[in-house]
Design a protein around this nucleic acid. Structure first.
Lengths: 238, 238
DNA sequence: ACCTGAACACCGTTCAAGT
DNA sequence: ACCTGAACACCGTTCAAGT
C-alpha cells in the first residue's frame, strides 16, 4: 500500500507536467522562488529526476516561455491587418498579465523558441497579407520589438520585477514620495496629470491598459501611414 | 615593506571605486560573472569589506546603473523639443552600447534610482517646455517606455543577453538556420529583406542603429502629430 | 540499465571570534 | 570599535555508488 500511495502521489513525471508545475510555481511564488530543488519538491520528486526531462534550468525556462506563448489566441483571419494585429497583441497582453514573470524571462533568454518563432512568423504573415513589402515588414517588426508579444518595459512597474501576480498596485509616478516629488518637479507634475474622464481623479496612478493601447495605437497608426505612403528603406545614405 | 606593498595595491576602498570596478567587471566578463566574491577579488579585498560601502548586491546594481546613466550627455537646450529629445536618446543609446548588461539590469530592478529619476525628470521638462500638456507628456513618457533611456527590447539580440560587449554580430533573423527558415517562411523572407542602399546586400543581418532610429522616429513623428492636434485623453470612456 | 544520494563548486549574507 | 574568517542557507549540476 506504500506502493499505491506512491503511484497516487506521483503520476508519472513528464516534461509537460514539469513545465506546468514550473509555470504555476513562478505565478504563485515569483520567479525568484523557481529553483530546480523547489520545483522538484512541488512535484514530490527528487531534484535529479527533473534532468531526465529537461537538460538544464535554461531549457526549463524556454519550455515555460513556450507554455505561456502557446496560450495566446491564434490570429483570426480578416481583411484588415491592423485590427488583426492589434487584437492579437491585446490577447497576448492578457496572457502575460497572468504570468507576470514571463516578460523578464523572455527578455533575459534568447527568443528563438519554437512557439515564439511561430508567433512572430504568423504576425509577419499578417503584415505581408495586408500588402506590406518584406522590407517594410522587417523594419516594422523591429520597431514593434517586444510590444508585439504584448509587453513593454514600463518605467515604473514593480509588479513585473517582483514576478508575482496579484493586485495591480498603481505604482506609477503617482506614488512619488514627497521628498522625491520636490526634487523632480516635472515628474511630480505629470504623475497626477492623467486626466482621463474624471478630472478630479488625481494621484490615482494610471491605467495600465490605457497606456498600453495608447502606445500600441501610436505605433500602428504610424505604421499604417508609412504603408499607405509606400515607404521603403532604399536610397537612404549608408 | 609589506605595509607599503599593501597600500600600493589597495588604495582605500570607497563606494565609488567599488561601483567603477563592478561596471568594469560586468563590461568585460559579463553580468553573470559579477558576484560579490569576484568583485572583491578584483579589488584585492575580502568579500565582506564591500558591505561597508554597499548594503547588498541589489544596492550595488542600483549604483552601477546610476554610474551608467550618469554618462549620458545632458540635455542641450534648444527651441525644438523633438531634436533635443531625439539627440539625447541617441546619446543614451551610445552609452548603453558600451554597457550591454545595463538594459537588462535596469529592467530587472526598480527604476527609481536618483540618476534615472533626474534623467526622466529632465526629459519630461523638455516636453513641457515644448508646449506639451502635462496630460500628453504623461502618456508620451509611457509610450516611449525604456526607449527613452536608449534601449529597446529587440527580438533577436543575443549580445545583450550575454551581457558582454564586443563585436556586434548580426544575429537578426538573417541568421536563421536552414531548418528553421523552412518552417517559418515569413521570418525567412523578411530576414534578408532589409534592402537599404545596396539591394544586393542580402543575408547580412540588419543595421541596429537604423532599426533603432526607425522606431524612434516612428514614435516621435506620431507624438508630434498628436501634439499639433492638441490631443487630450479627456472624454474617453472609463 | 536506471535511479538517486552525496558531493562539488559556487552563491549572498550572517555572525561571532579575533585584533 | 573595527575587521574578517568561518559558517549558514541556499544554488545548478556532476558523478559514482546503489538497486
Amino acid at each position: 500500500m506504500v506502493e499505491q500511495a506512491d503511484t497516487l502521489r506521483r503520476t508519472p513525471l513528464s516534461r509537460d507536467r514539469i513545465l506546468r508545475a514550473a509555470v504555476a510555481l513562478a505565478n504563485e511564488a515569483g520567479i525568484e522562488s523557481l529553483s530546480m530543488r523547489n520545483l522538484a519538491q512541488d512535484l514530490g520528486v527528487v531534484p535529479m529526476a527533473l534532468y531526465k526531462h529537461v537538460a538544464n534550468k535554461d531549457e526549463l525556462l524556454d519550455g515555460m516561455i513556450d507554455v505561456v506563448v502557446g496560450e495566446i489566441d491564434p490570429l483570426v483571419p480578416g481583411a484588415d491587418w491592423k485590427h488583426m494585429v492589434r487584437r492579437r497583441i491585446l490577447s497576448a497582453r492578457q496572457v502575460l498579465r497572468r504570468h507576470p514573470w514571463a516578460p523578464l524571462a523572455i527578455e533575459s533568454r534568447n527568443m528563438a523558441t519554437p512557439a515564439i518563432l511561430a508567433y512572430l512568423d504568423s504576425m509577419v504573415g499578417a503584415f505581408r497579407a495586408g500588402g506590406f513589402s518584406a522590407d517594410l515588414a522587417h523594419h516594422v517588426m523591429h520597431a514593434m520589438g517586444s510590444r508585439i508579444l504584448g509587453f513593454s518595459q514600463e518605467l515604473f512597474d514593480a509588479a513585473r520585477r517582483a514576478g508575482r501576480s496579484g493586485t495591480t498596485v498603481p505604482d506609477s509616478p503617482a506614488a512619488l514620495p514627497p521628498g522625491v516629488a520636490a526634487r523632480f518637479p516635472h515628474l511630480a507634475e505629470i504623475a497626477t496629470a492623467a486626466s482621463h474622464d474624471d478630472e478630479s481623479v488625481v494621484g490615482q496612478g494610471c491605467d495600465d491598459q490605457f497606456e498600453f493601447e495608447f502606445a500600441l495605437d501610436l505605433l500602428l497608426d504610424g505604421i499604417e501611414r508609412l504603408h499607405q505612403q509606400g515607404w521603403t528603406s532604399s536610397r537612404r545614405p549608408r
